[in-house]
Design a protein around this nucleic acid. Structure first.
Length: 887
DNA sequence: ATGCTACCTG
DNA sequence: CAGGTAGCAT
């Protein structure tokens, strides 16, 4: 009584006493309300309608669509992974270091394949065949050397086979080693030699498979320490599979040097592995053939080198006479190249430690890019050269010994290219032009010849796709790197390193850089395409952190063709984005990638969400289009989207719904799950929301989907699942809807919210937000009630009965203004009743002086929470706003 | 330990 | 409206 002092009291002075209403909210079907005025603490009737939270690994898809080749590649990659995994990091590193001695040989085989299907493919098949045979039967006789204790019968699982770091030497290897290694090995290795010889002999007689144990000295690089060796021996059988594919370890080290004679085993097996029965024979014959081929190739390379040198000399002579302008250009080019090279070297060293997962991934990606690149290469001579280089490189990798030659050659090429560039840049010298042209042609011819030869020689007949991938095996720059000393002992590693060279600019250095932490920072070199590919695949937002990437990309000039996905992405900031599509320089809006194609192990390896979570989800959603993640203010439709009027003037609710969907929430979400946002793809169908009638069905389907998904536990998980209509965040329309729902229910249960916001993928975050919204609504509501109650008291109202809340009441107006600002919704009478009850409760409480009690509101809350009424079914429709507002 | 709420603050 | 905090209840 005394207390009504006034408004002053309105300000909440309540100390932070907990006023929670312990009231249990009856939720389920809100029907209860009125009937039960009684205060019993009703047991909740919550019908748990559906637990939809789900998080679902929606995505297992992945492979399904991939081509067989991809599958194989993946498989292989996996196997490599497995192989690597077992080793503790230190071990791996040590192995790698050891391996450094030699240029990597083997690795390339493993990965190149991925990149370039052409040659790799055959290889792969061969491997598979072999592996299969070995696995299936476990009989050493088939693929491997029979002599040694048989490898323990391993389960068919591929992993077992590769469990030991490197693939054992391929069957053919023995030969190579014998000829080559013996020459070079130092005294220290005599023993090793002996063993090797024995092995070789054995292998010759029996089967190709040689035990890695033989290569003790550094060569065994792959094998690594004793431990590794043991393992190798055990696995020999299994490893053998790979062996065919990549004889890396043994071959690698010495090989590089042996410009002259070393004949490394050619990893690629063009021959069909199919004839397993006479495997050994095949191997032997194959080896011989390979050697032949190698020699020829080598000779060709030498010739090429000579030619290049000559050309270079010529060029320089001419060049000297050229204009200064041109010189400048040229110098720039050189400088760039130099930088790249340095980087290359550094990278290579650093890269050693990389686990290879990312690399592998990248490699794969690269392969794709490469493919695309081919077209360009044909057009642009420079590119062509690069490509040729890449091919050569690849080959070199294949033949480890040739590497150096290649490098040299490459140098030459570079210089030649440089010259060309200058010319092109300078454009000036009249006479120079002709010369340039001539040089170009010559170079092209020479290169093309070599390339053709190589391709023919190596590309397996099987791979019909040859031309597609054909030349592209990006030669893993590793070769060049190798010079710097980073031949990863593990087959996979080398190949992993991305080959930057492809880029037109390319000089030959590796563009790829690994951060100390192993995070890949691919420097994308030159070709825009590559970029794209990269972007498509890798660039999940998390990568953004690797600022280097984007930054570097920006540097790349070429606008590329690519763009597969770009159009789909909605960039808010970009606005219509004009140019951004091509220009990566912008802050990294994560380019969408196609999930199905790229499982992007990278992210997984980085510790980001497991692949399963990375599902793509459609940014532009049908029902509620989102704008790009962070900046979603409604500023207007993001470019590309149907522009929708931001304001929701009641005029066209429809447009509203669709249009202003972006929500602040999203921002939050983005921050939380930001990493994921990037990935979302859109495959979805573009919205069909046009017809409201469909929505009902949609809603159902949505709910089903949701249920399937299960709920995500973490915000991080918000992964958006690309359901057609399910959103990962709450839109402004959702907020509006919630407000309207407040007219019916002040205390909705989370289950209810899930039911009514079926178009939202619920996770903790979303649920919390919705609850928070209602909490805020209540807060405002009760504040208003208290305020008006006190006001009434001050005005002299004697009895609560005098208080009535009608549509004209100020209280109502205030509330309506808050929850239904546009006043485009007809507030149910029930709400007025509840409001009136609430007001009276407050009035009575205050009059009674209960407000002295810090928790005096609690009682009121209890009462009010029981007054919730059922929310009309319409609200369950995602498009309810359209329907509701129309009225 | 979790979920829901109120309260407070920005 | 959202963040943060704290009490209560499960």
């Amino acid at each position: 009584m005394p207390d009504h002092d006034g408004a002053a009291l309105l300000t909440r002075q309540t100390k932070r006493r907990r006023v929670d209403i312990g009231v249990k909210r009856t939720v389920g079907s809100a029907a209860y309300a009125r009937a039960r005025e009684s205060p019993p603490p009703d047991g909740m009737s919550q019908a748990h309608g559906q637990e939809q939270d789900g998080d679902g690994p929606l995505v297992a898809h992945g492979d399904g669509e991939k081509s067989n080749v991809l599958r194989k590649l993946l498989k292989r990659a996996n196997s490599y992974e497995d192989a690597i995994m077992p080793f503790p990091g230190a071990t791996i590193i040590s192995q790698l270091l050891k391996g450094n001695m030699g240029k990597n040989g083997g690795s390339d085989s493993g990965f190149q394949g991925s990149g370039a299907l052409s040659s790799g493919g055959s290889e792969i098949q061969a491997e598979d065949a072999c592996s299969n045979s070995s696995r299936d039967r476990d009989s050493p006789s088939d693929c491997l050397s029979p002599g040694p204790p048989l490898p323990p019968p391993l389960p068919p699982s591929s992993s077992s086979s590769s469990s030991f770091g490197r693939p054992p030497p391929p069957p053919t290897q023995p030969l190579a080693l014998s000829s080559f290694d013996l020459d070079r090995l130092s005294d220290e290795h005599l023993r090793a030699k002996r063993a090797r010889v024995e092995n070789i002999i054995r292998g010759m007689s029996h089967s190709p498979l040689v035990r890695p144990g033989a290569g003790e000295h550094g060569l065994d690089g792959g094998g690594g320490g004793g431990r590794g060796r043991e393992n190798d021996t055990n696995n020999s059988g299994n490893n053998g599979d790979h062996g065919l594919g990549c004889p890396s370890g043994l071959l690698s080290s010495p090989g590089s040097r042996g410009a002259g004679e070393v004949y490394r085993e050619n990893k690629r097996k063009q021959r069909l592995p199919q004839q397993q029965h006479s495997f050994t024979q095949l191997v032997c014959s194959r080896q011989e053939q390979r050697q032949e081929e190698r020699r020829q190739l080598k000779l060709q390379l030498e010739d090429m080198q000579k030619q290049l040198r000559q050309l270079q000399e010529k060029f320089y002579q001419i060049y000297d006479s050229e204009t200064e302008e041109e010189e400048e250009n040229g110098e720039n080019g050189e400088a760039e190249r130099g930088g790249e090279r340095e980087e290359d070297g550094n990278l290579s060293e650093d890269s050693i430690r990389s686990d290879g997962l990312e690399e592998r991934h990248r490699d794969r990606d690269r392969g794709r890019g490469r493919r695309g690149h081919d077209d360009l290469s044909e057009l642009d001579p420079g590119l062509f050269l690069d490509r040729a280089r890449a091919l050569l490189r690849e080959q070199a990798l294949i033949d480890g010994e040739l590497e150096e030659d290649v490098d040299i050659r490459e140098e030459e090429d570079r210089s030649g290219e440089r010259g060309m560039k200058r010319r092109g840049g300078g454009g000036g010298g009249g006479g120079g032009r002709q010369l340039a042209e001539t040089l170009k042609q010559e170079l092209n011819c020479a290169v093309s010849q070599v390339v053709d030869t190589v391709v023919k020689g190596f590309s397996s007949p099987k791979q019909g796709g040859g031309h597609l991938h054909g030349g592209t095996p990006a030669a893993p720059s590793s070769s060049s790197n190798s010079s710097s000393s980073c031949p990863p002992p593990f087959g996979p590693l080398p190949s992993l390193t991305p080959d930057p060279r492809f880029g037109g600019g390319g000089g030959g250095s590796l563009a790829l850089g690994l951060n100390g932490d192993g995070s890949p920072t691919p420097s994308y070199h030159s070709s825009g395409q590559r970029l794209h590919c990269f972007g498509d695949v890798l660039v999940p937002s998390p990568l953004d952190s690797f600022g280097g990437l984007s930054g570097r990309l920006s540097g790349v000039p070429t606008p590329n063709d690519q763009t597969e996905a770009l159009p789909l992405v909605v960039r808010k900031s970009g606005g219509g984005g004009a140019g951004e599509g091509a220009n990566p320089s912008l802050p990294p809006p994560p380019p969408p990638h196609h999930p199905s194609l790229h499982p992007s192990p990278l992210t997984a390896s980085l510790g980001f969400s497991p692949p399963s979570f990375r599902h793509p989800f459609p940014l532009p959603l049908m029902g509620y289009p989102f704008q790009s993640p962070l900046g979603s203010h409604g500023g207007g439709g993001a470019g590309g989207y149907p522009s929708v009027p931001k304001d929701h003037h009641r005029s066209s609710p429809d447009s509203m719904d669709i249009a202003r969907e972006t929500v602040s929430l999203r921002t939050k979400m983005a921050s939380l799950g930001g990493t994921h946002l990037g990935h979302h793809h859109h495959h979805h169908h573009h919205h069909r929301q046009s017809s409201p009638s469909q929505h009902g069905a949609e809603g159902l389907s949505l709910s089903l989907i949701k249920s399937e998904c299960g709920d995500l536990q973490d915000m991080a998980d918000i992964s958006p699942y690309s359901g057609s209509t399910i959103q990962e965040g709450l839109s402004p329309n959702h907020l509006k809807k919630a407000k309207l729902m407040f007219f019916y229910t002040r205390y909705p249960s989370s289950n209810m919210l899930k039911m009514f916001f079926s178009d939202v993928k619920f996770n903790r975050c979303i649920t919390s937000q919705l609850i928070k919204w209602f909490s805020n609504f209540r807060e405002f509501y009760y504040i208003q009630m208290e305020k008006f109650a006190r006001q009434a008291i001050n005005e002299g109202v004697a009895a609560a009965e005098e208080l009535a809340v009608g549509r004209d009441a100020e209280l109502f107006r205030a509330l309506n203004m808050h929850y239904n600002k546009a006043n485009d919704f007809e507030v149910p009478d029930r709400f007025l009743e509840v409001a009136q009850v609430t007001l009276r409760e407050f009035f009575n409480a205050i009059v009674a002086g209960k407000d002295a009690d810090p928790s005096w509101k609690k009682a009121i809350y209890k009462v009010i929470c029981k007054l919730d009424s059922e929310v009309p079914e319409v609200f369950k429709s995602p498009n309810c706003l359209q329907e509701l507002l129309h009225d």
